[in-house]
């Protein structure tokens, strides 16, 4: 296992370097830069730009240097936690991101937990009670969850939460706690608001996981070793947990890789609708305004989460089911 971990880490490092080069190239592809757009905007509205400050920032962040030097400067900064400077906010990216990153983590991990906690027992129940009325009901709910657009569900839940629970519309906390230091009241307010975005963002993922777990588990439950174990009188729960469930979990675990970045990037539209103070809306703004360090750092953060997620899911798969799997028509 140690060899496997070392191999995987050694693959991760060049992968991250390659991704950082691609990200930096892409955010530099549009003509001009943030400053030229900014100056053009000011001139079109008849205002004077502070050219001295702009030239200072250009020189400080190496905009007058070749692209590869700019990349080295940016990537070197990332290594020691300097994510660059947000020209749109006139603040270092670290300060701009601030609480938003923490909020994003809270929303994302709560959503992942919600997805797993809800889908796991329902998927197992549906598979072990195939074609019962409860299975049909859960299947219907699953399809509804898959088919309902997240932003629509967000609007409906915001309305219901406000009317029936008195929770303020939008945001992750009551307005009086915004920009205030953390306190017990603020934590309670976040907890009271959190369930809406978690349910909205997690519903589609939960529904698809239920369907997949059900299908995988049904495949396993029909195999001969399960029939043999049943015939020999093994306790149904022990049989379920010892082999079929473990086998059925493989696709479940391999999903972790795509789950982390998907929850963050996929939540952007919902975050805009619900006015969540997370990173999604900020990423959209940064991409629109060519705020390159802010956009690049976000994209790099998401790429990092993807690589970490795939690493975790690969490790979990290697621990749970380290069997030989050769693709392209070879032995499975």
């Amino acid at each position: 296992m140690l060899s496997y971990i070392v191999h995987r880490i050694l693959i991760m490092i060049p992968t991250l370097i390659a991704i950082s080069i691609v990200i930096f190239t892409i955010i530099n592809l549009p003509p001009g830069d943030y400053f030229s757009t900014y100056i053009a905007e000011l001139q079109s509205s008849g205002e004077a730009a502070d050219l001295a400050k702009i030239n200072f920032l250009k020189a400080q962040y190496g905009f007058d240097r070749p692209l590869w030097e700019q990349y080295i400067f940016w990537a070197g900064g990332l290594l020691h936690g300097d994510m660059g400077y947000s020209f749109a906010y006139n603040l270092p990216v670290n300060q701009v991101v601030g609480d938003r990153l923490l909020m994003t983590f809270i929303v994302s991990f709560s959503t992942i937990l919600f997805t797993y906690i809800v889908s796991f027992p329902i998927g197992v129940y549906s598979a072990t009670h195939q074609y019962s009325w409860s299975d049909h009901l859960l299947t219907l709910l699953g399809f509804l969850g898959l088919a309902t657009p997240s932003f629509l569900l967000a609007l409906v839940l915001l309305y219901l939460a406000n009317v029936y629970f008195g929770i303020s519309i939008g945001g992750l906390m009551d307005p009086k706690y915004v920009d205030q230091p953390w306190s017990f009241g603020k934590v309670l307010s976040v907890a009271a608001h959190l369930w809406i975005p978690v349910v909205v963002i997690g519903t589609a993922g939960t529904a698809s996981m239920i369907r997949r777990l059900r299908a995988n588990l049904l495949d396993e439950l029909q195999k001969q070793y399960v029939v043999t174990a049943r015939a020999k009188g093994l306790h149904p729960l022990k049989l379920l947990f010892k082999y079929p469930l473990r086998m059925a979990l493989n696709p479940f675990i391999s999903d972790i890789g795509s789950l982390l970045p998907h929850v963050i990037s996929g939540a952007a539209i919902v975050s805009v609708v619900m006015s969540l103070p997370t990173t999604g809306p900020m990423l959209l703004d940064a991409l629109r305004s060519q705020d390159m360090y802010l956009a690049g750092s976000f994209l790099m953060f998401m790429a990092f989460l993807t690589v970490i997620g795939v690493f975790i899911s690969d490790l979990a798969l290697a621990v749970l089911d380290p069997r030989i799997r050769l693709q392209a028509g070879r032995r499975e």
Partner: peptide, 16 residues
């Protein structure tokens, strides 16, 4: 007996 491979197609791995 475990098999580990870092490739997506499962080839080039080793056993433990």
């Amino acid at each position: 007996l475990s098999y580990y491979s870092t490739r997506r197609d499962g080839r080039g791995g080793w056993m433990q």
